[in-house]
Simulated scan of single mutants.
Amino acid sequence: MKHLLKGIVITALVFYPFLVGYALSQGHLVWISVLLIVLGMLRLFSKGNTLLWPLTGFAILCGGFSLILQDQQWLKLYPVLMSVGSCVIFATTLLRPPSMIERFARLAEPDLPPEGVAWTRQVTKVWCGFFIINALIALYTVYAASMQIWVLYNGFISYVLMGILLLGEYLLRKRQQGLHQ
């Protein structure tokens, strides 16, 4: 049951921009605000990774401010804060190793060589840069773009860019490992 609930929360958060776009076009500000708060609370009480708590807090904060102030901008700011929070999380792992990308890499390669550790540290820095740029673009879509552009960027384009970065890192890491063998 715990995994099912976790899957529902993750799926709802991935599709969040589409849910917001639809709900706001139908005049359901309260409904989507409450949903964001509930998703945040479910994530908070699921006793997941404490590294993700800032993202959970941002969900509750954005949903709460949107509900209290009756302002849809707070719902649209959630992806911005997700990128900022992700940047903080990744940067924190640079200060307290292993780096985030090293953690991911070790899932597939538990015996990551020292060159791989150094590589993943640099890639974690690249991800931090990505999250900063992504947050700025997402912020632009909140205040200077239509709802359709906001949904397109935050619900599709940003995920495609993350996928490209993730795949690119994996392929380059494999190439890098081949050079050091």
Rank of each mutant, 00 (worst) to 15 (best):
Phe156Tyr: 11
Ile133Lys: 06
Arg175Asn: 09
Gln72Gly: 12
Thr11Lys: 00
Thr11Arg: 00
Ser99Lys: 01
Leu44Glu: 08
Val14Ala: 11
Val20Leu: 03
Arg173Tyr: 03
Asn134Ser: 14
Trp31Arg: 13
Leu29Thr: 05
Lys2Thr: 00
Gln73Thr: 15
Ile89Gly: 01
Tyr153Gln: 09
Leu52Gln: 06
Met82Pro: 15
Ser25Asn: 08
Ile133Thr: 14
Pro113Ile: 01
Arg103Tyr: 00
Val142Gln: 10
Val20Thr: 07
Leu4Ile: 13
Tyr170Glu: 13
Ala135Pro: 08
Gly85Pro: 14
Lys47Val: 00
Leu75Met: 09
Tyr22Phe: 14
Gly178Arg: 12
Pro54Cys: 12
Ile149Ala: 13
Pro17Cys: 09
Ser66Arg: 03
Val84Asp: 03
Val160Asp: 07
Tyr16Cys: 04
Val9Phe: 00
Phe15Met: 14
Gly57Gln: 05
Ala145Val: 05
Asn134Thr: 09
Leu95Gly: 09
Arg106Phe: 01
Met147Cys: 12
Leu67Ala: 13
Val84Met: 10
Ile137Met: 11
Leu55Thr: 12
Leu4Met: 11
Phe156Glu: 09
Gln72Arg: 10
Ala105Val: 07
Ser158Val: 10
Ser99Gln: 06
Ser33Asn: 08
Trp74Pro: 01
Phe104Pro: 01
Ser146Tyr: 03
Ser86Trp: 01
Lys47Leu: 02
Leu171Ile: 03
Val34Arg: 13
Gln122Ala: 03
Met1Glu: 10
Pro97Met: 11
Phe18Tyr: 05
Leu172Met: 12
Leu95Asn: 03
Leu61His: 12
Glu109Thr: 05
Leu152Arg: 11
Leu139Tyr: 07
Arg96Lys: 13
Met147Pro: 15
Gln177Thr: 13
Val80Arg: 09
Leu81Thr: 06
Val9Arg: 05
Tyr153Arg: 12
Glu169Leu: 02
Ile37Gly: 06
Phe18Cys: 13
Leu81Phe: 15
Arg175Tyr: 09
Trp74Gly: 00
Leu69Asp: 06
Trp119Phe: 05
Ala138Trp: 00
Gly7Cys: 06
Ala105His: 02
Ser25Glu: 08
Thr92Ala: 15
Phe58Ile: 02
Gln70Asn: 14
Ile132Val: 15
Gly27Lys: 13
Gly48Ile: 07
Phe58Pro: 11
Ile32Lys: 08
Ala108Met: 13
Tyr140Pro: 15
Tyr170Asp: 14
Gln181Tyr: 15
Ser25Gln: 09
Leu94Gln: 02
Leu165Phe: 00
Leu29Lys: 02
Ser146Pro: 01
Gly40Ala: 02
Gln73Glu: 14
Leu139Ile: 03
Ser86Phe: 01
Ile132Phe: 14
Leu39Glu: 03
Leu107Ala: 06
Trp31Gln: 06
Leu55Glu: 10
Leu171Glu: 14
Phe130Tyr: 13
Ser158Trp: 02
Trp74His: 07
Ala108Ile: 04
Ser146Glu: 10
Lys2Pro: 14
Ala118Thr: 14
Ile164Glu: 11
Leu4Lys: 14
Leu179Ser: 12
Ile137Trp: 14
Ala59Cys: 07
Cys87Pro: 05
Lys76Phe: 15
Lys2Gly: 12
Gly129Gln: 03
Val80Lys: 05
Phe156Leu: 15
Ile164Asp: 10
Pro110Ala: 03
Asp111Ala: 04
His180Gly: 10
Gly21Thr: 05
Ile8Ala: 15
Ser158Arg: 04
Gln26Pro: 08
Met162His: 01
Arg43Glu: 07
Val20Phe: 09
Val38Asp: 00
Ile37Phe: 03
Leu95Ala: 08
Phe65Met: 02
Ile89Phe: 11
Thr124Gly: 01
Gly163Ser: 08
